[in-house]
Design a binder for these strands. Structure first.
Lengths: 231, 231
DNA sequence: TAAGGAATCTGACTTAAGTCAAGGAAATCC
DNA sequence: GGATTTCCTTGACTTAAGTCAGATTCCTTA
């Protein structure tokens, strides 16, 4: 892991959490934040580590997970750029409740606990933004929970693919596609299943002519059917 | 549903969310809050209803759920007294994302959206309390998600029973017990399974001499084994 | 207290998805 | 650029838990 000073305020402006702040406030945040970059597979923090602060992902992909029995892990969150992670203990106290690992070369902004709490006290706007962020994630988690308990693997995979295709912004093309930026084992753990089952489900959807799988790239042949599966 | 005026500030002090406030602030909250009581099986709100505000449960038990296919519902939250529910849309916008139903005779405090938002703007302490509340629930949901994906029904049931026994404060007795305050069908939906499977699991734990089931009351014969199952 | 309905249980059966074991394809590293 | 590790796929098998149908038991409410 490499730590560097932050020198541009422009990046901070792109982060929804900070988008409403004045130049002066952004300077203040810059002054106590640190850029940290992580190599592929590098661990950012591990469950039960002493809590020092939270992160904002600037580049790359991060998996946030809990490891139950050794070898088995459930992926709680697949973090994309400009998203905050590990902010829960900020208000709850305690150590990191989950682990996080860089899935590829990653750049993050680290925000130390005490400094940001101080800032939040004076800056109502940030508190509201964080409340909104928490609310959004609570909603997402409730949905994920509902999906896992009430839907089967093909349905969950369909939903995941649609989300990824939206992110890739190819959803308006005649043949939408995504290059999966996450290993299939991780997708499986995120969908509450295992690699073998995921592999078979990809094949099933392909046999049904809904998608076409070419290595890590998935092409959608029949968006209507995929959407039906997802809902 | 019956609505009445709130006249005592004492109740408000018992609610963790408001515990730090001054008499003056509590008066203000009283002035715009309404006591609402609900009969058994009465619906408090339904998914997609226009969002008016949130509730604090004062007495009884409430289930918060999502209904996917008709008849099938996944229970997201089993609310106990002095807990806030339906506060997510306060900061996220949109309608109620879930439904809520009184499982027995219930008394709630209803807090209208606009008024409380106003108050939060002036009262930093409430914002922090809400952040802490959200953080706690996020943690709980992450745990629930992990349990459902990585553990089997007997393990989940064991965990649920231990939690309920703690709430009943009989956990220090030589034979801890709980009277289930929630129908078994609801417990099943909360644990991500169905009544038949739950029934068989109760029987299995009984055959293994871990618990003894007498109608709605569960006695624990072997707390050690139950705890082992739960972790 | 009898009757009706809801909640719960039980049995027989089916099925989605997990386990185990092995082979193949990619990516990564000297 | 070939070797080694990591990732992904496939097949045969097992199993936890779901489905369906029917039987009990437990509550109400008249």
């Amino acid at each position: 892991m490499i730590t560097t000073e932050l020198n541009s305020n422009q990046t901070l402006r792109d982060i929804p959490l900070f988008s409403e702040l004045s130049i002066e406030q952004l300077r203040r945040i810059s002054s106590f934040s640190k850029l940290k970059s992580f190599k592929k597979h590098e661990r950012i923090f591990i469950e039960d580590d002493f809590y020092l602060g939270f992160y904002i992902l600037l580049k790359g992909r991060v998996k946030v997970y809990k490891s139950s029995s050794p070898g088995k892990e459930s992926v709680v969150h697949l973090v994309s750029p400009f998203t905050v992670f590990a902010d829960i203990p900020l208000f709850e106290g305690g150590n990191y409740p989950v682990s996080a690992e860089a899935l590829e070369e990653c750049l993050t902004l680290f925000i130390p606990k005490e400094k940001i709490l101080e800032l939040i006290r004076t800056e109502m706007e940030i508190a509201f933004k964080m409340l909104a962020g928490f609310a959004k994630r609570l909603k997402a988690l409730v949905n994920q929970l509902e999906d896992i308990t009430s839907k089967e693997v093909p349905n969950r995979l369909a939903k995941y693919l649609i989300k990824e295709i939206k992110r890739a912004r190819t959803d308006k093309l005649s043949e939408p596609f995504v290059k999966l930026s996450v290993p299939k084992a991780t997708i499986a753990a995120y969908l509450g299943t295992i690699t073998e089952t995921l592999s078979r489900t990809f094949k099933k959807l392909q046999d049904e002519k809904i998608i076409r799988v070419k290595g890590k790239t998935i092409f959608v042949n029949d968006m209507k059917q995929l959407k039906d599966l997802a809902k």
